[in-house]
């Protein structure tokens, strides 16, 4: 009976947590991946959340975003792995036992890379491209996901003090990169949207 009550209480808590934070998690994913991926990643994040519900901290959003970051990274690695697989086949024609994919090797593959699709080819995109992946990811967490440095630190799994220092430097580098981009504007060639008659 008590187990049943615990189960009901857990479900209620989970549903409240989902109702409160799922939109923000989905927005985080949509800023970095395409629409078709977002619902899949969101479901994945809350499956992890449900299974590790006892580990969810008092401020759950950064923790959830951290999970989303890992899920996205795993997906990106899957995409890259396929390209690498074909390259490797071409280079070595090695036996098939070598092609086992790896997951969860601790590195997060280009989570912020998808953001380029939305920023585009302007000075801002050029400036972002000049930054390191770590700088880009931190700046986007602050500017797009509106996290405080200490919450961003939870997402990135580093100390808040480290994030504050990195943020100062990343902002400076963004400003410098933006200035450099604007002094060298990229050419743009408009294309007709009309079909030929």
């Amino acid at each position: 009976m008590s187990g049943h009550i615990v189960g009901v209480e857990r479900r209620l808590r989970f549903e409240l947590l989902y109702a409160k934070h799922a939109p923000a998690v989905k927005a985080y994913v949509l800023r970095r991946a395409d629409v078709s991926t977002a619902d899949d990643v969101l479901a994945e994040v809350f499956v992890v959340c449900w299974r590790r519900f006892d580990e969810v901290p008092a401020d759950p959003l950064p923790w959830l975003l951290g999970v989303a970051r890992r899920v996205l990274s795993t997906q990106r690695r899957g995409e890259r792995r396929r390209g690498a697989l074909r390259d490797r086949l071409a280079e070595t024609a090695s036996d098939s036992t070598d092609v086992t994919p790896e997951v969860g090797d601790g590195t997060l593959a280009g989570v912020a890379d998808g953001a380029f699709a939305y920023v585009g080819a302007g000075a801002l995109a050029g400036a972002l491209a000049r930054l390191s992946e770590a700088d880009r990811e931190l700046l986007l967490l602050i500017a797009w996901d509106e996290l405080s440095p200490s919450r961003a630190a939870t997402v990135l799994n580093v100390k808040p003090a480290t994030v504050r220092v990195r943020l100062l430097r990343a902002r400076r580098r963004l400003t410098q990169a933006l200035a450099r981009e604007e002094s060298e504007p990229a050419p743009c060639s408009p294309l007709s949207m009309e079909a030929p008659s």
Binding site: A27, L30, R31, A115, Y118, V119, L124, A127, L128, L139, L140, I142, A143, W144, E146, R171, L174, T175, L178
Partner: peptide
């Protein structure tokens, strides 16, 4: 620069 980045928020 941060304001410009925030303004480019796609969602």
């Amino acid at each position: 620069s941060m304001a410009r980045l925030a303004a480019a928020n796609p969602v």
